[in-house]
Nucleic acid binder design. Structure first.
Lengths: 220, 220
DNA sequence: ATAAAACTTGACTACTTGGTCAAATTTGAA
DNA sequence: TTCAAATTTGACCAAGTAGTCAAGTTTTAT
């Protein structure tokens, strides 16, 4: 872990991107998928290459043929997640209608958490253990992006299109809530009983969350 | 792990409570405090008794003199947390003013997350790994309590004292947001820069969160 | 068809981990 | 003070753990 270059997200722009064979593409995908499951429940330290390899349907030795180390598997999985994370956030359009823009963003984020809860949990885990691999990313790339969107929200407030709330805390509240349905889904399920597994449940949750947040920030 | 009785929270009522010597009381406290730190960052599987013992300032062998196993240390730490968790929630008074009651609860919860983030993270970790030790507690004790409070909120809505929001999702939103400041504090700090370490920061966060949530549910 | 390159694996190593045990050392009640 | 009970620890063990290596097997370009 020590000394390695932290190249999450920022990298992958100039890299020559060595072409991968069919088998490589397939197996790397299998591994990353298995890794997502194991890392997201057991955390970085608790996860083992044996379990990941088993879940991926291959020997540990073979896994290590595709990735040089445990940390590299983890880093790669994490990077994929973070990239997907950012897109909908970037898409918040300062020129659009605030309520509509935020509704769209919250809906997308809820959907992502719902469809890929493991990714959400893995990210949460990384932050909870002190973000050793992505602290730098948080302080540079993500901070820049958040500052930008905070400014957008501030402008909406100045234009009277939004209630005067602190943009940063509004963003945190949205992130917190949407992640909750992924990270705490065991608790959500336990507390809602069978209700949570019914077909329309996800839409209903989204509706409830949107209703509270959007009314909380509607101009008044 | 397998086969052991799950006695989180529900227990501790009839147990004879063997009296503890001064040294026992002190050392158990030292261990549990160290355990909280290690478990909350490394998770159950990732935590090691060696690290916990070291942080507690004693040998691993000695630690195992006070607790029979790693799981027992973990279970005890978790139990303490959950008990403290529940009190403010229980205290929500159906006969009080809704906004006032919820303001009080949210404030208390934010304060708890702020003062004891490790506890919050440890709990989050337990849920994220599938709640193996407290699933039963979630489905029985906690569910009963939540159902109760949901009814209270529903009554408030029927009386027109609160906007018509789904009580369960409102509770989730409150939990999610308050936990966020503990579980994601590395991210919060990274994104807010020095601002987050300033003295009044916590009060300011509380104000922002309260403002959004309470306005989101005020009758309209 | 064939051989080089790509892929796969079992055996192995050095190290960590939860837990045991017996032998000290310390504590505290009489 | 005194000695049994309580506390503490180093040595140890069996079961993992990440990662290496050399020897195979399969793919693929020709």
């Amino acid at each position: 872990m020590a000394g390695k270059e932290n190249q999450i997200v920022e990298a992958g722009k100039k890299q020559p991107k060595k072409k991968r064979s069919r088998i490589q593409t397939e197996n790397r995908a299998l591994i990353l998928d298995a890794a997502l499951q194991v890392f997201s429940t057991d955390g970085y330290r608790g996860a083992t290459l044996d379990r990941i390899a088993e879940k991926a349907g291959m020997s540990k030795t073979n896994l290590l043929y595709y990735f040089p180390s445990k940390e590299d598997v983890y880093r790669t999985a994490l990077e994929q997640i973070v990239v997907n994370w950012l897109d909908p956030f970037r898409d918040i359009d300062g020129d659009g209608d605030p309520i509509e823009q935020l509704r769209r963003y919250i809906t997308l984020k809820l959907k992502a958490s719902h469809e890929n809860p493991e990714a959400s949990r893995l990210f949460a885990n990384e932050i909870q253990r002190g973000a050793p691999l992505i602290k730098d990313f948080l302080e540079t790339t993500l901070k820049k992006l958040v500052d930008e969107k905070a400014k957008v929200i501030h402008r909406w407030i100045d234009d009277g299109k939004l209630a005067p709330v602190d943009p940063y805390h509004l963003i945190f509240l949205i992130w917190a809530t949407t992640q909750h349905y992924a990270d705490f889904d065991v608790q959500v399920n336990a507390l809602l009983g069978n209700q949570a597994s019914k077909p329309g449940f996800y839409e209903q949750s989204a509706q409830a969350v949107l209703s509270i947040i959007l009314n909380g920030i509607r101009p008044r």
